[in-house]
Design a protein around this nucleic acid. Sequence first.
DNA 1: GTCTATAAGGTGATAGAC
DNA 2: GTCTATCACCTTATAGAC
Lengths: 196, 196
Amino acid sequence: MARTTGSHCDITGPKVRRAALTLFARHGYAAVSMRQIAGAVGVQAGALYNYTPDKQTLLFSLMQGHMEALLTARADLPSPEDPVEGLEGFERFHIHFHLARPDAVFIAYMELRNLEPGNFAEIERLRRAYEDALEDILRAGVAAGVCDIPDTRIATRAVIAMLTGVMTWYRADGLLTPDALADCYWSMTQAMVGAG
Amino acid sequence: MARTTGSHCDITGPKVRRAALTLFARHGYAAVSMRQIAGAVGVQAGALYNYTPDKQTLLFSLMQGHMEALLTARADLPSPEDPVEGLEGFERFHIHFHLARPDAVFIAYMELRNLEPGNFAEIERLRRAYEDALEDILRAGVAAGVCDIPDTRIATRAVIAMLTGVMTWYRADGLLTPDALADCYWSMTQAMVGAG
DNA sequence: GTCTATAAGGTGATAGAC
DNA sequence: GTCTATCACCTTATAGAC
């Protein structure tokens, strides 16, 4: 017979994070109450405070976890000599990583304004580090004469905006596979930075 | 002597809309209370209901107004024969229109999930109409052999995502003028769709 | 670790005086 | 058209029983 009370520390923690991720992505941080999260987990609201000191820290922790996973996975990519190869690796990584985590990506972009100043600064720092990784590649491409862009920093942001834009319309149940999508965006990325 | 009560119908209505626009953009619809909006306007909360039946309608009205202004202004653009000229006109219009209305743009992208289903469908319809205008240009460019893109619909969304991405980092007090920015994005747009 | 109960305060929206 | 007062409800977070 299933216990409805007692010790569940091993599973409740992750369940809280998953429920919060889903609900924050769907309705927005400010529109989701601790009671709703608790309801989705199957506990009472008070029990959530065994896993987070407050709602704000829960949001921050989700965003920080996402950004650190993004940076770690990016750092594990091979670093080819050829800047165009490096750009292709970055582009395919970006598409696949983002498609696999739509809720976390949504939150990382939409909930920045709901972070307290210190938390915002930390997430901004991580986001900047990711941008810098792409900018390094583009700068190397310009230096090697295989890229033609008007401004390295703006082109960096433009590429990331274009690639991340896939999240606003792609549905996993469509006809396009993630690989086909990455192919499509790679050809546009290449053209955009003059690396055809 | 200034009256603190009485008839102000001519000015309070617009002030309510402006205050709501600013506050929704800064903190998010769900995080802003009617009392906060009233405070920004300089009235009590109850007075707001002379100008909107409820909070949801206020949000919808702001988004609808923005999207209709966007479509109207777009429709007033010249329609040159040359698809590349048409694309350049669209691109420069998009940058300037968006830079001039950062709060409205922010709301139109971020608050979609806070719309009730019927309201959401209407905003989606308007957004789709705007996308279609660009897609028509790109399709004409492909037909004329002056554009080279892998998929017209995806390229349409990619161009809009890239251009709208300027909103996440551009600050009016920076060194870059809107015209210089539009130049920069035009060269990237051109390259992206193979219309160099 | 989870529960119930509660504190302290905010929410959207309305009624009726002026 | 705006005010004050109010309704009915929801909010985050905590305290103490089990």
